[in-house]
Design a protein around this nucleic acid. Structure first.
Lengths: 195, 195
DNA sequence: CAAGCCCTATCTATCATCAGGTAGGTAATC
DNA sequence: GATTACCTACCTGATGATAGATAGGGCTTG
């Protein structure tokens, strides 16, 4: 199967994602984006009629891509702790990429300044993560760990983990130091918030 | 002692804080701000030569104001759990104010788009919080709770709490629902992250 | 085969609006 | 006169978006 050549639309989305993860939705401009892709800004309107459209598609794709990756982690070969480690590593990797943060977290901060169609996708991103985390929390555990709790409690714990990871990323971002993220996540584990 | 009349500089700072907490530093414009205060935008330059100056003073003042409040909580009359409850309530109150978020958290997200003098103040804000939290964690506890840990471990726990609270606020903000914040914070307490 | 049409994907030029910032002016007060 | 605290007018640069143009490719028709 041949490797698909990235088309212009994909290139736009990829460049936009990187920009939003560092400079926010407010820092995303069609002119800069066009330069990144090697086209002119009016051409972006061909693919995305408005900035809001681009933002919404971007957030939606971000959720789908991440869901795909996370789904692969639940194929039955990994235990709970490893799954959760892989999860926290996703956010770590984003930080490691020029101190970037999660696109969902960024747009959540920018809540009042993004269009409603983007806000909706940000909430969906959160919900996808929490659902996944609840499933991961329900996995069989490695030896000598406590057994998983009931379903509603898992959902709440999942929500708390999701929030805590975003906070860890945010603080590490302000310091420009991924070791801060690592220390915080280790403290979460030590406290039992993350198994 | 007469109540001091808020002067223009104070009014500017107050209005700017509210704007940044909802719309971010990127959403702060001198023209809008001037309207909020009832002056013209050129007048703001009289007090703050540049937007970066305003941003840095704003973040600094935010830290000082919060430090003052938190210091009052450590006057010896409150136990550890109550202090920490008051702490989490600070961020809750911000959410309750038209779904706003902590100015430090907002500017941390906007890290790449704020001037260096603002970034520095954001880090100081975090450090002040973590120092305070470590002191609060070291307070005598109410009956039947575990005794405080050693000093370095307190610092790390304090950092983790600081991060976790910011994440909780961020997620609640995206949902526009303070009950989400409450649920997350309760889960932090249930897990032992927050005593 | 050539011409014409349509579609796709890009472009130039432009618009209206907004931003931070500057220079100079004015009024009130001491 | 000097200082303070405001103002108007303006500058430059940036933004999302629009209208119209163009080139290339594929398909249909005579």
């Amino acid at each position: 199967m041949a490797t698909p050549i990235p088309d212009t639309r994909q290139k736009i989305l990829e460049a936009a994602r990187l920009t939003v993860q560092s400079r926010g939705y407010a820092g995303l401009s069609f002119r800069e984006l066009a330069k990144d892709v090697g086209i002119k800004s009016a051409s972006i309107h061909y693919y995305f009629p408005s900035k809001g459209d681009l933002g919404a598609v971007l957030a939606q794709k971000y959720t789908e891509d991440m869901a795909g990756y996370l789904e692969g982690l639940l194929d039955g070969t990994l235990d709970r702790e490893t799954c959760l480690k892989r999860y926290t590593d996703v956010f770590r990797t984003t930080l490691r990429n020029d101190n970037r943060m999660c696109l969902g977290g960024m747009m959540a901060a920018e809540h009042d300044e993004v269009p409603a169609e983007v806000q909706v996708e940000v909430v969906k991103f959160g919900e996808m993560n929490v659902r996944w985390l609840a499933r991961a929390l329900a996995l069989p555990t490695s030896p000598r760990k406590k057994t998983p709790a009931a379903s509603a409690a898992l959902e709440t714990q999942a929500l708390a983990i999701f929030a805590a990871i975003h906070g860890a990323q945010l603080v590490a971002r302000s310091r420009g130091d991924v070791a801060v993220y690592d220390a915080i996540v280790a403290a979460y584990r030590a406290s039992g918030l993350i198994p």
